[in-house]
Design a protein around this nucleic acid. Sequence first.
RNA 1: GGGAGUGUAGCUCAGUCGGUAGAGCAACGGCCUUUUAAGCCGUAGGUCCUGGGUUCGAGUCCCAGCACUCUCACCA
Length: 488
Amino acid sequence: MTIQADSDKFEQQRQEKREKLEALGLDPYGLRYDDVEAAEAVKERFKDEEERQHARCAGRIVLLRDIGKLIFITLRDRSGTIQVGLSKKMLNEQWTLAKLLDLGDIIGASGQLGRTRTGEITIWVEEDGLAFLSKCLAQPPEKFHGLADIDQRYRQRYVDLWANPEVMGRFIKRSAITTTIRQHLESRGFLEVETPMMQAIAGGAAARPFITHHNSLDLDLYLRISPELFLKRLLVGGLERVFEINRNFRNEGLSRWHNPEFTMLELYQAYGDYHDMMDLTEELISACVAAHCNGPEVKFGDLDIDLSGRWRRAKYADLLWEHAGCDIGDLQAVREKARALELDEAGMDDAVVVNEVFEATVEHHLVNPTFVIDYPAVLCPLTKRSKENPNYAERFELFIARMELANAYTELNDPTQQYENFMIQLRGQEETMATMDHDYITALKYGMPPAGGLGIGIDRLVMVLTGVTSIRDVILFPLLKPVGPENA
RNA sequence: GGGAGUGUAGCUCAGUCGGUAGAGCAACGGCCUUUUAAGCCGUAGGUCCUGGGUUCGAGUCCCAGCACUCUCACCA
């Protein structure tokens, strides 16, 4: 279902209006329109200053009230709305045009500012002050409820954005959040880089990749599941502090928390470790909260989340003890707990059972920001092991609102150890198309500085900071199945 | 992939026990110079998601399919 079909009668009617405009010598798809001021900025500047002022705005007609020889329009641009008043007496010849306006048309309006009886700030369009910028041929959605059908909102985001102002606001905020992150990182000497999205070896994570094909090389390539191994090559090259904010692609199921393509911030800091990454994570997210949220308390569905202060840092093993009641070293007890949770533990490796129990018992308690630190080393093939206890890896995951939001390590820079870990990881992972990345090992042989590395899921961060519980509401065009012509 | 739910006018939604398809907004025609989801009078608008089946008769009941939502599974 789309809003309008070619044969649509509404479109016919609007086409006729378009032809009337053309008959009057007007281009219904107008030219450049200079010196446009944001609607909200106009209202702001007129708020205190009541003297005669001129204004010039452009935007889409979202409400239209025709009361005879006077027309009131609510004009929306990306800043908000402003009322435009058109009067027959003031417009003279252009009054004919005013009467041809439809909901959804994009117009320019210039004239003196004034207030109506009820105090609404209004641009009273002067003679020749009305410009047709684009005729809307499709029927706009209902003015009060907007576009509510979720499927249609995602498929026709171009309508959703102006029909539902909070949607536009959310995506503007998303952009502002990544800007804040970039500024923060650049001020700390990080360099933004871009690494391959198409990779011959899909490494840096355990996930099934998408496959694509290069024709003239006759070469199968993978869409990256992670930029990690390339970014760390840059540490070998000496760039020392690098970050990338871009898409990863994972060929997995869809859910409220998963879109097949999603945006990650990944960064690497030479001579640091995972403690630095914890501090940096806290700083980055706190900076976003300070800049883009109304206070550190945010609502997320039914959850109230407090993002203030220093966040809890809790060891993986301690959390397991706290919520599952078993000692991570007591595999008997862990397997018993797994059976009690009705997990099918019989065929699983010990470490997998531990992690399953952890996920089943601990994660849903992690509502306020919590750094889960010191993961079992076997779960972390790219992470340096803890000096005090080599069974654990210097890794943390940050949970907020029960979601995994960030993942960071002290990076493993020993090529011999890395090679062994890859070999272990490759066993029994045919499905993920995992292949040994020999060049990465070679890179490590040249020497990679000790480093901290961090990944933050930008989509999920935006979810938390905007309070929406579906990842599709923070992605402009989430993946949907195409609608066949028989369903159109 | 499993389970549950939703799909009716351009949009938002009603539709009783199986008996002629409804409202508001939008549209079209008319009135109206300070409206605020403007108002008043009138008109028009339907592949009831698709395809089968049951029935004298299906928007409604049954079967299959499609899309979306929730949920489970998958998922560093």
